[in-house]
Protein backbone atom coordinates (compact mmCIF):
# COMPACT_ATOMS: atom_id res chain seq x y z
CA UNK A 1 0.00 0.00 0.00
CA UNK A 2 1.27 3.46 -0.86
CA UNK A 3 0.14 6.59 0.93
CA UNK A 4 0.84 9.94 -0.70
CA UNK A 5 1.99 12.07 2.19
CA UNK A 6 1.06 15.67 1.38
CA UNK A 7 4.45 16.76 2.68
CA UNK A 8 6.76 13.97 1.49
CA UNK A 9 5.11 12.35 -1.54
CA UNK A 10 4.11 8.72 -2.05
CA UNK A 11 5.60 6.49 0.61
CA UNK A 12 5.23 2.83 1.54
CA UNK A 13 2.71 1.93 4.21
CA UNK A 14 5.55 0.64 6.37
CA UNK A 15 6.54 4.25 7.07
CA UNK A 16 3.14 5.04 8.55
CA UNK A 17 1.40 4.27 11.80
CA UNK A 18 -2.33 3.77 11.75
CA UNK A 19 -4.16 6.13 14.08
CA UNK A 20 -7.68 4.92 13.46
CA UNK A 21 -11.19 6.13 12.76
CA UNK A 22 -11.26 9.82 11.86
CA UNK A 23 -15.02 10.14 12.02
CA UNK A 24 -15.09 10.37 15.79
CA UNK A 25 -15.77 13.68 17.47
CA UNK A 26 -14.05 14.48 20.73
CA UNK A 27 -16.54 16.03 23.14
CA UNK A 28 -15.79 19.38 24.67
CA UNK A 29 -12.97 18.73 27.16
CA UNK A 30 -15.08 19.96 30.04
CA UNK A 31 -18.10 17.90 29.01
CA UNK A 32 -19.36 15.37 31.51
CA UNK A 33 -21.53 13.64 28.91
CA UNK A 34 -20.55 10.03 29.61
CA UNK A 35 -22.36 8.72 26.54
CA UNK A 36 -20.56 11.14 24.24
CA UNK A 37 -17.19 10.26 25.74
CA UNK A 38 -17.96 6.57 25.46
CA UNK A 39 -18.88 6.96 21.83
CA UNK A 40 -15.69 8.91 21.16
CA UNK A 41 -13.31 6.55 22.94
CA UNK A 42 -14.89 3.17 22.28
CA UNK A 43 -17.30 3.17 19.37
CA UNK A 44 -16.19 2.83 15.77
CA UNK A 45 -18.03 3.13 12.47
CA UNK A 46 -15.93 0.26 11.12
CA UNK A 47 -17.10 0.91 7.56
CA UNK A 48 -16.83 -1.73 4.89
CA UNK A 49 -16.06 0.64 2.04
CA UNK A 50 -14.66 4.18 2.07
CA UNK A 51 -13.25 4.82 5.52
CA UNK A 52 -12.02 8.11 6.88
CA UNK A 53 -8.98 7.44 9.03
CA UNK A 54 -5.82 8.96 10.46
CA UNK A 55 -2.32 7.81 9.68
CA UNK A 56 0.87 9.27 11.02
CA UNK A 57 3.92 9.45 8.80
CA UNK A 58 5.94 8.20 11.73
CA UNK A 59 8.92 7.12 9.66
CA UNK A 60 8.94 10.43 7.80
CA UNK A 61 7.71 13.93 8.60
CA UNK A 62 5.64 12.64 11.54
CA UNK A 63 2.59 14.59 10.42
CA UNK A 64 -0.84 13.07 10.77
CA UNK A 65 -2.84 12.75 7.58
CA UNK A 66 -6.50 12.06 6.93
CA UNK A 67 -6.86 9.23 4.47
CA UNK A 68 -9.99 8.02 2.76
CA UNK A 69 -9.37 4.40 2.00
CA UNK A 70 -11.72 1.68 0.90
CA UNK A 71 -11.48 -1.06 3.51
CA UNK A 72 -12.71 -3.66 1.05
CA UNK A 73 -10.24 -2.93 -1.75
CA UNK A 74 -7.58 -0.95 0.16
CA UNK A 75 -7.81 1.70 -2.55
CA UNK A 76 -6.92 5.16 -1.31
CA UNK A 77 -8.99 7.96 -2.78
CA UNK A 78 -7.69 10.93 -0.84
CA UNK A 79 -4.96 12.02 1.53
CA UNK A 80 -4.97 15.40 3.27
CA UNK A 81 -3.06 16.93 6.15
CA UNK A 82 -4.86 16.42 9.45
CA UNK A 83 -3.74 19.91 10.35
CA UNK A 84 -4.90 21.99 7.43
CA UNK A 85 -2.76 25.03 8.14
CA UNK A 86 0.64 23.49 7.98
CA UNK A 87 1.17 22.87 4.32
Amino acid sequence: MLISCPYCGPRDVSEFTYQGDATRTRPDPASADAAAWHEYVYERSNEAGPHREFWQHAGGCRAHVVVIRNTVTHEISSVAPARGDRI
Partner: peptide
Protein backbone atom coordinates in the same frame (compact mmCIF):
# COMPACT_ATOMS: atom_id res chain seq x y z
CA UNK B 1 5.67 11.27 21.56
CA UNK B 2 3.07 9.77 19.24
CA UNK B 3 0.31 10.47 21.75
CA UNK B 4 1.29 14.14 21.99
CA UNK B 5 1.70 14.53 18.25
CA UNK B 6 -1.73 13.06 17.68
CA UNK B 7 -3.38 15.55 19.98
CA UNK B 8 -1.53 18.49 18.47
CA UNK B 9 -2.24 17.47 14.88
CA UNK B 10 -5.74 16.16 15.24
CA UNK B 11 -7.42 17.50 18.34
CA UNK B 12 -5.80 20.85 19.05
CA UNK B 13 -4.27 22.07 15.79
Amino acid sequence: MQHLEYFLDVVWP
